[in-house]
């Protein structure tokens, strides 16, 4: 999403709750990691609407020759139906790494997003995997 204060674009999930806050990420507010401005989390209807619009707008932007950043994308940003190649697994957590590798998700492997809500479902080879945001966010991809 885009910060309504400074305009910095960031991944919502990378900006979850303040650690010491008892409400954790459930306060309904989201803090921009760039300027620290707190804004209400987007509701589902608006998110859906915006996603549609962005989907339509992305082509235009691309057409205008603006550089669309494809590197450093996480799998959670891959749209349903789209394919990408895993570039890296970005986690310091050993057990998370083990899980991802056990599922056959390794650099160079093709993934296809199938569904993003309520839980991510994607295809790796002939395997369908379902995983939550926590895990999917550690898988870095490159669009084909």
């Amino acid at each position: 999403m885009k910060c309504s204060f400074c305009g910095y674009e960031f991944n919502e999930t990378s900006a979850t709750g303040c650690k010491s806050c008892p409400l954790q990420a459930n306060c309904g507010q989201i803090k921009c990691p760039h300027c620290g401005f707190e804004m209400p989390q987007e509701n589902l209807v608006w998110k859906w609407f915006r996603r549609r619009r962005r989907g339509a707008g992305a082509g235009r932007r691309h057409g205008q020759g603006k550089k669309v950043c494809t590197e450093g994308m996480t799998l959670s940003e891959l749209e349903p139906g789209k394919e990408a190649i895993v570039s890296h697994i970005d986690t310091g957590n050993k057990s998370t790494l083990n899980k991802i590798m056990a599922l056959g998700i390794l650099p160079g492997v093709r993934v296809t997003m199938i569904q993003k809500f309520p839980t991510f479902v994607f295809q790796v080879g002939n395997t369908r995997v379902t995983a939550d945001e926590q895990l999917v966010n550690t898988i870095m991809i490159q669009k084909t």
Binding site: K99, V129, T130, Q134
Partner: peptide, 9 residues
């Protein structure tokens, strides 16, 4: 810790 959810379908 809250372990991540993952499963083969």
């Amino acid at each position: 810790e809250k372990p991540a959810f993952y499963m083969e379908l």
